[in-house]
């Protein structure tokens, strides 16, 4: 009997471990150990901070994505927002000689433009899904392509360098040796994590993702929650874009390209179910860190860049398999009468 109790305690621990999003942390730890052995530079403070700085853009995008994925939707246009929002701000801020429109908005207004346009795009996505009733895959895919084109239109196909300190501060400044972008990412992760776990809005998200009709019958304003989830996703993608522009000290026309794939990968690796209603921020962060660490390790190990991309893809598949197996083993209990 003792053995049995012991085993079920382990089982309970395992279930909680997976359910709370810790599945990937042992893998992450393993990678760090491997990294430390393979590349001595890996564990240096500079490199670790570098990794965090690199993942903060992906991290914010993935957190934004998890809003809509939790309710069983998706938003491909986030990638377009990462590029478009800071570009719009940059062309309005930069002088005509630097490729701008000559409006020369002050810095704080530029920041407002970037986040405001990001939120508006999210609002538009919500409108298309909730009011018009489009499938989010197709409506946000269309918008993604439209935004990529719009970036080229508004910038006339040219990147804008040094758009202004207010826009680039978040992505380039450091406080006590830590990049502000990392602090922003961590703050948003903690805040959104608390909202998902302890806020009524988070409860509504999970309920809608798992059984939309039941959420409706319980009196939750389902349409409003879905709509707002798209707005939050857009806002966070806009913030990610601002950080990226800051780090590069320029709004580049190709900014954000391909980030949506990494964001989906990070979310799934972190245990977020694309079917909705499952996953949390602890998991999302693990997925983001995993991708960041792998990229960094491959670069440090001087793997040729062609191989970096292919092996990142392979790792994503392996990690997704691991996550799926773990969550299937720990839950999936279904009873009937």
């Amino acid at each position: 009997m003792m053995v049995r109790a012991e085993r079920s305690r382990w089982q309970a621990f395992g279930q909680g471990f997976v359910a709370h999003g810790f599945t990937m942390y042992p893998v992450l730890l393993l990678l760090v150990i491997v990294g430390a052995v393979v590349a001595p530079r890996f564990l240096s403070t500079i490199n670790l901070i570098n990794i965090l700085e690199q993942v903060s853009v992906l991290g914010l995008t993935t957190i934004g994505l998890s809003f809509v994925v939790l309710i069983g939707r998706l938003d491909l246009s986030l990638e377009g927002i990462v590029g478009f929002a800071p570009m719009l701000a940059a062309v309005l801020m930069a002088s005509a000689s630097a490729g701008g429109y000559g409006v020369e908005l002050p810095g704080w207004a530029g920041l407002l433009v970037a986040l405001g346009s990001a939120g508006l795009i999210g609002f538009f996505n919500g409108f298309m899904v909730v009011r018009v009733g489009l499938n989010p895959f197709i409506s946000t895919l269309g918008l993604l392509v439209l935004l990529r084109g719009s970036i080229l239109i508004i910038s006339n196909g040219r990147s804008i360098y040094s758009p202004g300190a207010a826009l680039t501060y978040l992505g380039s400044a450091k406080i006590a040796g830590l990049p502000v972008s990392v602090l922003v990412f961590l703050a948003v992760a903690v805040l959104v994590g608390c909202i998902f776990q302890y806020h009524r809005y988070g409860r509504a998200l999970y309920a809608i993702g798992r059984n939309e009709e039941a959420a409706r019958a319980a009196g939750i304003d389902v349409d409003r929650v879905i709509w707002s989830a798209f707005v939050f996703a857009g806002l966070l993608a806009g913030l990610a874009g601002v950080l990226m522009t800051g780090r590069l000290d320029s709004a580049v026309t190709t900014q954000g390209e391909g980030i949506i794939f990494s964001a989906f990968a990070a979310a799934v690796i972190g245990g977020v179910s694309l079917g909705g209603g499952k996953g949390n921020i602890i998991g999302v962060v693990s997925g983001v860190l995993l991708i960041g660490v792998i990229n960094n390790l491959l670069t440090l190990a001087q793997v040729p860049s062609f191989y970096v991309q292919a092996s990142t893809g392979a790792v994503i598949i392996v990690a997704a398999v691991l996550t799926t197996l773990a969550s299937r083993r720990s839950s999936g209990v279904k009873t009937r009468t």
Partner: peptide, 14 residues
């Protein structure tokens, strides 16, 4: 209390 509890009554995983 809605008519079909499986469809709209409860969220099974919660």
């Amino acid at each position: 209390v809605p008519t079909d509890r499986h469809a709209s009554g409860y969220v099974g995983l919660l």
